[in-house]
């Protein structure tokens, strides 16, 4: 199983990466939305993509919209992992095609439980 982690913080990518690796995922990383799109083209469709919201160059929200505009990624599972916790932000992310939403900070269990909601892991 493949996971793509898009976050501008290396530490955060490491934390999430460690959790997912433990669950048996092969990890790919990107530091912003543009890199994320590049990575997608390189690695093909991951089983899950975890995306931060606030990042330079291209935000997670823009990434989400860009990905959902391409039909080849229709079935790709996308989860926002962000410090943004306002209701309208969660609602907008879901409307734009996010499948789940994690509010930072989180624990290992949170990630596992959300993945099981999505039917991955």
């Amino acid at each position: 199983m493949k996971a793509l982690i898009i976050d501008d913080s290396r530490t955060m990518r490491m934390i999430i990466g460690r959790i997912l690796r433990e669950l048996g995922f092969e990890i790919h990383e990107a530091g912003n939305g543009i890199e994320g799109l590049d990575r997608l083209r390189e690695i093909g469709q991951p089983d899950i993509t975890l995306v931060d919201w606030n990042m330079p160059e291209m935000t997670g929200f823009e990434f989400l919209k860009a990905v959902r505009a391409q039909s080849e990624y229709d079935s790709m599972k996308l989860m926002m992992v962000t410090t943004e916790t306002e209701m309208n932000q969660v609602a907008n992310a879901l409307d734009a095609g996010a499948n789940e939403y994690v509010m930072k900070p989180f624990t290992k269990d949170v990630i596992k439980e959300k993945l099981s909601l999505l039917g991955v892991a």
Partner: peptide, 8 residues
């Protein structure tokens, strides 16, 4: 809120 509750 993060634990097990679907975002929807």
């Amino acid at each position: 809120m993060n634990r097990g509750l679907p975002a929807s």
